[in-house]
Simulated assay, not measured.
Amino acid sequence: MNYEQYRWLIRYCQPVKKGLTLPEMSYIVRKVTSLNKSISKMNQTRMNWVGALLLVVLVGGSIAAEAPQRIISLAPNITEILFALEIEDRVVGVTDYCIYPPKAAQKASIGDLFNPNIEQIFALQPDLVIGLPASTPLLNTLELQGIPVLTVHNETIADILASIERIGDKTATSTRATALIDSIRHHIEPHSPTPSTPISAMIIIGRDPGQLTGIYVAGGKTFLSELLVRAGGQNAFADIKGYYNEASLEAIIQRNPRVIIELRPAAEQPQEAELRANWQPLAPQLQAVPQHLVFIFGDYLLIPGPRLPQIYHALLQALAPVSNE
Rank of each mutant, 00 (worst) to 15 (best):
Y3C: 05
Q5R: 14
Y6I: 13
Y6S: 07
W8V: 09
L9M: 15
I10L: 14
Y12P: 05
V16A: 05
L22W: 06
P23N: 10
M25T: 08
S26L: 13
V29I: 14
L35A: 14
K37F: 10
K41R: 12
W49Q: 13
L53S: 08
L54M: 14
L55Q: 14
G61R: 04
I63G: 04
A64H: 12
E66I: 11
I72W: 04
I78W: 01
I81H: 01
L82M: 07
A84V: 03
A84Q: 09
A84N: 09
L85A: 05
E86S: 12
E86N: 15
I87K: 03
E88W: 04
R90S: 12
V94G: 02
Y97E: 03
I99H: 06
A104V: 11
A104F: 04
I110G: 04
L113Y: 09
I118M: 12
I118L: 13
L124S: 03
L132M: 15
P133D: 06
A134T: 08
T141A: 10
L142F: 02
Q145E: 13
I147W: 04
P148I: 07
V152M: 10
E155M: 10
E155T: 10
E155D: 14
T156M: 04
I157F: 04
A158F: 00
D159M: 06
I160T: 06
S163T: 05
E165C: 03
R166E: 12
I167S: 03
I167T: 07
A172C: 04
A172W: 08
S174G: 14
T178N: 10
A179M: 11
D182W: 00
I184L: 09
R185M: 08
I188S: 01
E189I: 08
T194G: 11
T194E: 15
T197V: 15
I199L: 08
I199F: 05
A201Y: 02
I203G: 03
R207K: 15
D208A: 14
G210V: 09
G210A: 11
T213M: 12
G214M: 09
Y216Q: 14
A218Y: 00
G220S: 09
T222E: 02
F223M: 06
L224N: 02
S225D: 13
S225V: 01
L227Q: 02
L227D: 00
G232R: 01
G233M: 06
G233Q: 03
G233W: 06
A238I: 04
I240K: 01
Y243P: 01
E246G: 02
E246S: 13
S248H: 07
A251P: 01
I252V: 14
I253Q: 05
V259N: 01
I260V: 15
I261M: 14
R264W: 11
Q271I: 01
Q280P: 03
P281W: 03
A283C: 08
P284G: 11
Q285K: 12
V294T: 08
G298W: 01
D299F: 01
Y300E: 11
L302A: 08
P304D: 02
R307N: 14
P309K: 04
A314Y: 09
A314C: 13
L316I: 10
S323I: 15
